[in-house]
Amino acid sequence: MNNDIAIRTEDLTKAYKSFWGRRKILALDKLNIAIQKGEIFGLLGPNGSGKTTTLKLLLGLITPTDGRAYVLGKSTNDVAIKSKIGFLPEESCFYRFLNADETLDFYGQLFRIPGKERKLRINRLVEQAGLEFARKRPLRQYSKGMLRRIGIAQALINDPDLVILDEPTSGLDPIGTRETKDIILALKERGKTVLLCSHLLSDVQDICDRVAILDKGKLQLAGTIDELLSSKNVVEILIRNLPDEAIIEVETFIKEKKGEVISIKNSSGTLEDLFLKIHAANISNSKTDV
């Protein structure tokens, strides 16, 4: 097997059976993907398309009806390989009677991380998750966003080579979403592989190197973002400080060259950018007040 491949599936199929053992739902149908080490790979698709089923198969939570899957060169049944994997489930499923420190400590102990090292990692991750103010509060008192943050922290407690994230930004506010994206990008910079599944397309587009689109359990499309989205006969030029007369001249020039101008408009940012700008301004104001 190629050492550069983090995840590979071969005709991976999962059919859920009815009570009487008959095939009921074909959740995943002959999936073939290969994810390179060090890349951020996005798994896209509508609800019920087979994204979560794929992740569960890769993590050995469920067994495939047919086909095979390899994670970091090993079979998904290999328990030892899980020490190199970090996983964030779709729902934040943790013991709600534990606080943030205890939750991370519990998972850290399952990874057999020595005490001192575990403590350091817990402190770093709690800080990274922005949960220092609530670290001693039981998780049952956490909001959905806070649970998501502690979920991401527990997925990283073992400093994994492969991080599998199921809807990582679900329930997070724009700041949390941005921070999560930054964490994912930082992981990539450190050479980690990230597989994330989401139906928030903008998030995936922002950070993923490659994506695969699933629908009704079947792989519809796979490739880099540029490959999938670039249109060869449409050109986009972004210009700063161009006077109005010059715009008219450019438009005339394009028409002379038999090109078709689709739209000319002032560039607008995204709502996310605007939100983050306001938030940053508020923070700096409150610091000045102090």
Partner: peptide, 14 residues
């Protein structure tokens, strides 16, 4: 039911 075990079983635990 709560999904806690599906998180635990993704760790290197038999």
């Amino acid at each position: 039911e709560n999904g806690v075990l599906s998180t635990v079983t993704t760790k290197p635990v038999q």
